[in-house]
């Protein structure tokens, strides 16, 4: 855990520096120069922050679904705490992804909110997990609360696969990779310059490690609350 903690702090600090500091030039000659992307210019730097937050929220929700499944098959309270913790971190990061996305949309597409399929699907996610916490708070019986919220979390997690991965690619939209676009987008299509690619994947790694640290912290508070019967 200690390694994850220090590594994630270090990596994200490095990503912030290497994402923002290097200048963009038309003909990059050195490794510390980013190419100018027509239409994006300096705004492309958001890819190092917006995409990883969205990635972490997806991962967190999937992990939460997985722990709910583990809870139902094993009936170990620890898994319920982990599922709840992961869902709460997912909620936080999807809010961050919405905000960074809205800022990017303002400067690239003209307004904060464009009803792009991906913007709609993140609203679905926010409502779903907001409802998850509401559901948790509205059942008094401890055991049935854990059971029912786990069932809901599994249903929600599986259906969220459909509208985070499948629906945005079926409908026309502004995000890269939407229907009618030429390719899968810069990341999956592989059409991205080398140094951007490296920074991007390092950023993904850093944010994932950061998520693991947060999950560890949140789970430990959950265990403490359970032990002290503090609700």
């Amino acid at each position: 855990m200690k390694i994850i903690k220090y590594l994630s702090s270090l990596i994200i600090t490095l990503v912030i520096i290497s994402g923002i500091a290097p200048p963009i030039v038309e003909f990059p000659m050195h490794w510390y120069q980013y190419p100018i992307i027509p239409g994006l210019e300096d705004k492309f730097r958001n890819i190092f922050f917006h995409v990883p937050t969205a990635w972490v929220s997806t991962i967190a929700f999937l992990v939460s679904t997985y722990y709910s499944f583990k809870y139902l098959t094993s009936k170990n309270d620890l898994y319920d705490i982990k599922a709840e913790s992961s869902a709460s971190i997912g909620l936080l990061f999807s809010l961050l992804a919405t905000v960074t996305g809205a800022l990017w949309a303002k400067f690239n597409w003209g307004s904060f909110w464009n009803w792009d399929p991906r913007q709609v699907s993140i609203v679905f996610l926010l409502i779903i997990y907001f409802a998850y916490f509401l559901l948790r708070s509205s059942i008094k019986n401890e055991i049935s609360k854990n059971n029912i919220s786990a069932v809901y979390n599994i249903i929600a997690g599986i259906s969220s696969i459909f509208f985070t991965f499948i629906l945005p690619r079926m409908l026309t939209g502004l995000h890269p990779g939407a229907k009618g676009g030429k390719d899968l987008g810069p990341i999956l299509g592989g059409s991205i310059s080398g140094n951007i690619m490296v920074t991007f994947f390092v950023s993904l790694l850093g944010f994932t490690l950061f998520y693991l640290w947060l999950l560890n912290l949140r789970t430990r508070t959950g265990i403490l609350m359970k032990e002290l019967k503090y609700d």
């Binding site: 600090t13 912030i16 520096i17 923002i20 500091a21 200048p23 300096d42 912290l217 430990r220 403490l224």
Partner: peptide, 26 residues
Amino acid sequence: LFIVLTLVLLIWFGILIYLRTIENKI
């Protein structure tokens, strides 16, 4: 760019320090 960089770094270090204090408490 460098002003943005300093601000983002400041916020990030703030978050890190906050998380460390929480961890110590836990």
